[in-house]
Amino acid sequence: MEILRVENIKKWFPVRTGILSSILFGEKQFIKAVDGVSFTIDEGEVFCLVGESGCGKTTLARLIARLIEPTDGRIYYKGRDIVQMKKKEFRPLRREIQIIFQNPYEALDPRMRIYDILMEPIKLHKKHFEGDPDERIRTVMRDVKLNPDEYLWKFPHELSGGERQRVSIARSLMLYPKLLLADEPASMLDASVRSSILNLLTDLREEYNLTLLYITHDLAQAWYLCERIAVMYLGVIVELGKTDDVINSPLHPYTKALISNIPIPDPRRKTEAIEIKGEVPSPINVPPGCRFHPRCPYFMEGKCDKETPKYLDVGDGHIVACHLYE
């Protein structure tokens, strides 16, 4: 059953310019961070958004959590449009949609003890909280594999990066969420700690019956965790499908390049990387036609730089936006 449906969502941030330049150059400029994204997530699924820095994946998570308002488009959570909803109407849903941020060093208030950090969600939603708050805090601590007696009265600075990320995860679980948005939760951690966070999320998903939207730049993490992957490039999804389909038989030239460039911790498997020229262009001046065309090795003149490619389903929900497959 579908839990989340995102329809043609857009977020354009205005570029701040001086009065003089706005008079001289007229038109206002926008950073098109997210520029028409659609997808659905089923209940209980782990869905992954993969993309390089600046592709709009974090903006998308913030839109779904309703931390920012979209420029255009619809987001349906369990069939209800949360974009049109009034703040007050949305409040009960806030308990169900939770977000974990990338940087565990900034996501926790340095002046609060772990106990108070975890108490905060209960305080904010106390009318709807049943049971003993202290008991709940201890249970959640144990769920994220932290010993409550040892950690509850500590401050964030006394914790390592991995432990802090566990506290952030615990906080997001306090009110039994349904949909968890995890924005690169493992990327800032050391390698020896990263895998334990990935495994923890896998376990929690089972225990809490969670639907997980996992955001990462690391295809290897996506491959390990997720059932379906959407690859984003410059504000749009270029390919979407089941993890194995996308990783084993990628269609879009960008996905192909991305996969061939993943470093593999095994010198015996020296992969031949597809060379891609240049870097991601600025989201202010998005290339016309296919956004990837200036870097694409299969660029077709007169086609790719003129027409925006349509989404094509090649079977089994494997969707690609590329003129090569039309």
Binding site: A191, S192, V193, R194, S195, S196, L198, N199, T202, L219, A220, Q221, W223, Y224, I247, I259, I262, I264, P265, D266, R269
Partner: peptide
Amino acid sequence: SFPKIGSKKERLVTI
């Protein structure tokens, strides 16, 4: 502890 794309998917080792 690194997920190794392309090989068999098994639970990651943790430290």
